[in-house]
Amino acid sequence: MATTVAVYNIKGGVGKTSAAVNLAWTAADEGARVLLWDLDPQGAASYLLRIRPKVRGGGAKLVRGKSDPAALLKGSDHARLDLLPADFSYRNMDLALDATKRPTHGLARVLAPLAGDYDYVFLDCAPAISLASESVFAAADVLLVPLIPTPLSLRAYDQLARFVAEQVPKPRPRILAFLSMIDGRKTLHRDIAEQLAAADGVLGSTIPAASDIERMGSERRALAQFAPQGRAARAYGALWTELRGRLAG
């Protein structure tokens, strides 16, 4: 049965998609069978994997159980990594979910028949707290939260932790965070990173603000494909190793 990791943050622009794509790729490289679901209507993960952000029948049919999710999957350039692509209609995911019987279980229903084929499912989630994100919370075993070391980002993380603890019915996903887009030259980044290093639920591995990660957009490939030995690829490797350990523990 697959372990589902939702890469999630209320805020946008924190490195969710880079994390989802590179972690999924790294896991597949290690031999795991991995599915990545690009839930963001902007389709950045689909774009990076050179797969058209198009789902036949759109998101509404999918969450209503009218489309076979297995028939919508696309193999990536990694033989063990498949993608359930984004679709522009995902922008209306809340409406689509609302029209179902148990809106918060819509995503879990889609994933259920696929779970036996994969070891890990990564969800690249759109930034927001909405019905769609509540459905993410119900489907995920772990919320993996990329944090950029700014006070606002920390506030958003606190909001998320509170929301999950207070509003999400059991079984709740575990929340694990990691520091993303760290610029070692900035004092603020260094201070917040230090402050968070000891916090519960924050992973020790961090992801630097690296030009390799920015290049992913022009390369349209995972880091392991074009800069496998770079600082950023190694950082994602270490993050995956730590996360895998936590998932197993």
Partner: peptide, 13 residues
Amino acid sequence: VNVLDELGKIVVR
């Protein structure tokens, strides 16, 4: 030998 589509994506191995 990988066969690519117009996006440069592998479509047949």
